[in-house]
Amino acid sequence: MNIKLFGIEKIYKEKNRAIQALGGINLDINEGNYVTLVGPSGSGKTTLLSIIGGLIKPTSGDIYFDSKKLTHLPDHHWSTLRKKHFGFIFQKKVIIPHLTVLENIMVPLVFDEERSSHIQIKARAEELLADFEMETRKNDYPDKLSGGELQRVTIVRSLMTNPRLLLADEPTGDLDKKSSEKIINALKNLNKNGMTIIMVTHNMDLARTSRTIYSIKEGRIEKVLKG
């Protein structure tokens, strides 16, 4: 999935003042690339990631996926794109508390009209859980899991639909070194298998594992650190 951004601006309006989060971002990400956006807090990294994923709309500028302009696409088309082609990993480990690990992972396919049978969905979920060494925790509820395990569940969930683009916001967040390494290796392997990854992080060790690093400051791409 090739992604092109032209002059992306985002201005948040709060009562009597306007805050510019992004000021004219131009970016070109080729299929199979592994891109990291680094920068200080409030520099606009997460806003940019959310705009690419269609979670919020830019104030101005254009977004192209595979040469198709998506800027003014209606909300339900963005929903279809997210369902079919995008996977999200959030900094906040958002899991549905009253579903087990296995059920949480199966959720993305509930909203897919062309979904496979329940048995096929379950088989895929179990296969992915085994890949991430989580098969023994499949019947546990989220409150029994550690931070690292919860993050692995969100990664597995984001992979259920076999996305072409993975958007990760601080995937290692506040995890310990061992858990972080597991997640770093998982992301590297996914990219080796051809998945395009765009990640936001403060962690330079994690950023160095990617192929391209962009530094963002005050809503603008300041420099290319790698790639």
């Binding site: 909300d75 339900h76 929903s79 369902k83 999200f88 549905i96 993305p108 909203f111 897919d112």
Partner: peptide, 14 residues
């Protein structure tokens, strides 16, 4: 949060 997750996973507003 749950509704946010479902929206990010492709659920429509409706």
């Amino acid at each position: 949060d749950e509704f946010g997750i479902l929206r990010s996973l492709g659920a429509r507003r409706s």
